[in-house]
Simulated scan of single mutants.
Amino acid sequence: MSMPLIELCEVSRRYDDGPPALHEVSLTVRPGEAVAILGPSGSGKSTLLNLIAGLDRPDTGTVTVDGARIDQLGETGAALHRRTRIGMVFQFFHLLDDLTVTDNVALPARLAGLPRGETERRAAELLERLGIDRHARTHPDRLSGGERQRVAVARALMNRPALLLADEPTGALDTAAGQDVSRLLTELNAEGQTVVLVTHDLALARSCTSRTIRIADGRITHDQPSRAVAPEAVR
């Protein structure tokens, strides 16, 4: 059996004097899995994603991603790990409207110092693969929501990450565009990409992941195949 790509051991995180956002959470995700994290607002799912990404640190416990102890990295080390090993997709795209689609997609590689020729070839390959190569010279503010999310996914894949994290990737899209992104995530996972998806959308979780984790009050309450998730998971 392969080594875990993500391993959290008894992780807790508290903000200010409130109740724990996460309380003694342990979780393992193996390479090639597609996992959805479900829960209502305030359940701790975004905190969990931030800890996996190295955007936040646990108060107690350990976080290991792709062989690195994320909880022990400084800000610079965590940023470098995200840049090279983790791709991130957000609800509101976070594209730069003053750059072309190609330049947005190529940005992570340029920040990583890859040669310009290699960067341009990789960006063109991703735009063609995701069906948006005709928009290569367009600026993102001229695209539809679904097209912008495809650009964001291409950018996330630019440095060939071991892990793709998606935070409510269809939350700002209409139904048709949301289904398009769902199919894209399914295809990427079928090709071997490990995906961890945070969402409140049970239909999205069922359509593009094979495992769902339900969080409530900072604790994992269910961890099971997607088709078996109860509707109350997203209330």
Rank of each mutant, 00 (worst) to 15 (best):
L127M: 15
Q72F: 02
Q179N: 13
V29T: 05
E118W: 08
M1W: 10
R219Y: 02
F90C: 01
T199V: 14
A79T: 13
D133T: 09
S207T: 14
S43F: 08
A124C: 03
D174M: 07
V153I: 15
A166D: 08
T28I: 00
A79E: 06
A53E: 10
S41A: 05
E168T: 09
A166Y: 12
D59I: 08
V65M: 01
M1C: 04
S41C: 01
E187S: 05
H94W: 05
R83D: 00
R85Y: 07
M88H: 12
D71W: 04
I52A: 06
E33R: 12
E33W: 12
M1G: 13
P115L: 14
S12F: 13
G54M: 09
L49W: 06
T209H: 01
V63L: 05
I213S: 08
L126I: 03
R14P: 01
D217T: 04
D97M: 02
C9R: 15
Q91L: 09
E120T: 13
R122D: 03
Q72V: 01
P225V: 06
L163G: 10
G178S: 07
A112N: 11
A68P: 00
S2P: 15
A166M: 05
I6F: 11
L197Q: 03
G218F: 07
G67K: 10
T100C: 04
R206A: 15
A233S: 13
P140S: 12
E75Y: 05
T186Y: 07
R211D: 10
A233Q: 04
S144N: 08
L130Q: 06
D59N: 14
E187M: 01
Q72L: 13
R219F: 02
D66L: 01
I37T: 04
Y15A: 08
V196H: 12
L202K: 13
Q193C: 00
A216Q: 11
G131W: 12
I215S: 02
V198M: 11
G218N: 09
L204Q: 15
V89N: 10
E147T: 05
H139R: 15
E191V: 00
L126E: 03
E128W: 13
L107R: 08
Q179H: 14
R183K: 11
V89E: 12
I86K: 09
T221D: 05
T221C: 03
R57G: 02
R211S: 08
